[in-house]
Design a protein around this nucleic acid. Sequence first.
DNA 1: ATGACGATGCACT
DNA 2: GTGCATCGTCATG
Length: 189
Amino acid sequence: MSKPVPADFWTQPVVPLARALIGTTLLVDDVGGVITETEAYDIDDPASHAFGGPRGRNLIMFGRVGRAYVYKIYGIHWCLNFVGGAHPGSAVLIRALEPRYGLERMIERRNLADPRTLCSGPGKLAQALAIDQALNGAPLDQPPFALFLGEAPEIVTGPRIGITKAVDHPWRFGLRGSRYWSRAFPKDG
DNA sequence: ATGACGATGCACT
DNA sequence: GTGCATCGTCATG
């Protein structure tokens, strides 16, 4: 963990932003680790909650950058996004991280001890870091959030997971060689 | 290893 | 009523 996030970090286009977030250390209340997997979602993107313009739950995506967008999926799991990009209506889904800090609290919350699967998926990550609706709209540069850039790592790329529209956009990014992904990336990536 | 399936709430038609 | 930016469990190869 090293330098804090520069002020213009969040206003770069969302795809480079999603790449830049790989290798970043994310803490929520001192629990977290190194982000190993992200996905970009943009406004002109049928798979995005922002598609079709500002309404209902997606309003946060059209608000200030550098904030959390948290939503519930399948009635059960929470998912954490970072609002950012060159224009309103874009965000980065945080899909996985390598646990480094607060392992005991993650293990409690997940009721499972294998570090490999503690945060290997957006729903698991949210559960391990106690992300829920209460953090929707919360600024990422203030507690309980803390974010620290690392050295720029090597990145692998692939199609996004779990969507049925715009399936061919290669907007999923991973920390090359990490064992802490939700699923493998296709070869060559 | 891969695949089916249910859980459970809410946005949208 | 339908469809999710998912996960754990169960079954089968």
